[in-house]
């Protein structure tokens, strides 16, 4: 995760770089973020936090996170992406009942009466949840008193503008400018 900070308070710039790094690592989102740009102007006050994710969070089905093998009426599954294991298990329990879902090892699941096509199309992550979590983490980094916020979210770039009282048009323009520059960032 690359962090670029511009601001008028030298101490604050370094402190917020550390805060962002710590909080993103704490919530486990650091690995999905490619670049972050922070604009900190406490004298206005105006804060712009813009980040670009490594990939645009899209819809993920069980097929993206597990491999299948059918044997008669039984479906053998092997989870390849551990992050989705709890959601996969919960979806299978809901559809087939706990009695028919047998978790043999940490990653191997046997579904009695499981239909491969149906299971493979089950959605484990819509992408919205990931974005929500990233925005939540950004809000946690932002100063608490800076409550008036404006979000811009397009594809893999999320930008938050925050100020204390009125969100002025020129602030929005500045946020849009930072947002656009992040869209082109590599």
């Amino acid at each position: 995760m690359e962090i670029e900070v511009t601001g008028t308070d030298e101490y604050g710039n370094e402190a917020y770089r550390t805060l962002l790094d710590t909080i993103m690592n704490d919530v486990g989102k650091a690995q999905i973020i490619e670049k972050v740009k922070l604009v900190l102007e406490p004298e206005i006050p105006m804060f712009i936090f813009s980040l670009k994710l490594v990939n645009e969070p899209g819809i993920k089905t069980i097929a993206d996170a597990a491999d299948f093998r059918s044997e008669g009426s039984e479906l053998h599954m092997s989870i390849s992406d551990e992050r989705y294991a709890p959601q996969i298990l919960s979806l299978l329990w809901k559809r087939y009942g706990r009695a028919n879902v047998d978790q043999q090892t940490r990653f191997d699941i046997l579904v009695h009466g499981g239909d491969e096509k149906e299971v493979s199309e089950m959605v484990v992550d819509t992408g919205e949840e990931t974005k929500k979590e990233v925005i939540g983490a950004l809000w946690r980094v932002l100063p608490e008193g800076i409550k008036a916020r404006h979000n811009i979210s397009e594809g893999s770039v999320i930008t938050i503008l925050a100020t204390e009282e009125i969100v002025k048009p020129e602030m929005k323009e500045e946020a849009q400018r930072v947002h656009d520059s992040m869209k082109g960032a590599v």
Partner: peptide, 15 residues
């Protein structure tokens, strides 16, 4: 009511 108090403030000088 206390003998002394410590007030914890943040990272920006102006704030």
């Amino acid at each position: 009511e206390y003998d002394a108090a410590i007030l914890m403030l943040g990272n920006f000088k102006q704030c």
